[in-house]
């Protein structure tokens, strides 16, 4: 059964889209990530124009992060104050990011930059995660204790001025690195269509030393607002949000996520991280091939003032 996507302006198989949404939802539930970094490349592989894939991906992430953040809010593992500070940086970053997106599109380099950013970010994050999880797995095999966070240890980040007290996180921390982190994730959200959790979560844990239990809830909280903002601005300036595509992905995604969570609870953390790392690397390699292999047609035609 095919369905016509009004903004992407092409017909797609509805079951492929639902399957994609469910699979990514399953993985995001299992690994506790937003899934935007998987949805956008998958849509591009399925010939959805990258500009539409990015903006629609952001819209889809709104749904999955609302659902996730509410669960964390009920459990009390969400630091709203920290989330708001992140959000200040995030909204500023998203504003700049949309300008960059529009400019790249006009120059005809948007597709290239999106692919390059995905290859670089997925490649490095996937590589680091794989390295870290393989080491933990080996340590676990030797029955050595596994610890992610080393509390009490301070780094240069903790010597910066403009400190603020974050009660729920039990932290006294400068707002500068928090806003900067939010800002860079905001740019990535609007240019790549991701929530940015896959970068934000490790940065909050390793760089800012925020307790692991509040990290995911808080990052989801700020992702809701940055992706919502990005969706609205993309819709208003680039007309690239495909509501039909986004809704199909959301529905399949939230259902898939429920099953993913159940499977994820039965698996061990290091195994989960290794699995996610391999997945992220596979997507990066597939995108890298697209950049390096000679295209079938070196020319492309764009109608109108600017386009895809």
């Amino acid at each position: 059964m095919t369905i016509y996507l009004p903004i992407a302006e092409l017909s797609v198989n509805i079951f492929v889209i639902l399957g994609m949404g469910a699979a990514v939802g399953f993985l995001s539930g299992m690994f506790g990530v937003g899934g935007g970094f998987l949805i956008t490349p998958l849509l591009i592989f399925y010939n959805i124009p990258p500009a539409v894939a990015v903006a629609t991906g952001a819209n889809q992430v709104v749904a999955s992060s609302v659902s996730g953040a509410l669960a964390h809010f009920r459990r009390g593992t969400l630091d709203i104050k920290l989330g708001v500070v992140l959000l200040v940086g995030g909204l500023a970053g998203a504003t700049i990011g949309i300008q960059i997106f529009t400019m790249l599109r006009r120059l005809g380099q948007l597709d290239l930059i999106i692919s390059l950013l995905y290859v670089v970010f997925l490649g490095s994050v996937g590589g680091l995660m794989l390295w870290e999880s393989v080491n933990s797995l080996r340590r676990a095999a030797k029955n050595q204790p596994v610890s992610l966070r080393k509390p009490g240890q301070h780094n240069w980040v903790h010597r910066l001025p403009f400190k603020m007290r974050f009660k729920r996180s039990k932290l006294y921390l400068s707002v500068i690195p928090v806003i900067l982190l939010g800002f860079s994730i905001g740019i990535l959200t609007s240019v790549m269509g991701v929530g940015g959790g896959f970068i934000m979560v490790p940065a909050m844990i390793y760089l800012l030393r925020i307790p692991t239990n509040v990290v995911i809830g808080t990052s989801l909280f700020q992702i809701i607002f940055v992706t919502a903002f990005t969706t609205i601005v993309q819709a208003a300036t680039n007309f690239t949000v495909d509501i039909v595509l986004a809704w199909l992905l959301m529905i399949a995604g939230v259902i898939g996520a429920q099953y993913g969570v159940r499977v994820g609870q039965k698996m061990r953390g290091e195994q989960l991280r290794a699995g996610l790392a391999l997945l992220v690397l596979a997507v990066a390699i597939r995108l890298a091939f697209g950049l390096v292999l000679p295209p079938d047609e070196v020319y492309s035609v764009v109608s109108g003032s600017f386009g895809f």
Partner: peptide
């Protein structure tokens, strides 16, 4: 989407938020 981009975007976000909340 092309004539009322802003309202369309707000609606897209609303739809996503409701979908997430319901789920």
């Amino acid at each position: 989407a092309h004539s009322y981009g802003l309202a369309y975007g707000v609606f897209a976000v609303f739809l996503a938020a409701v979908t997430g909340w319901l789920s």
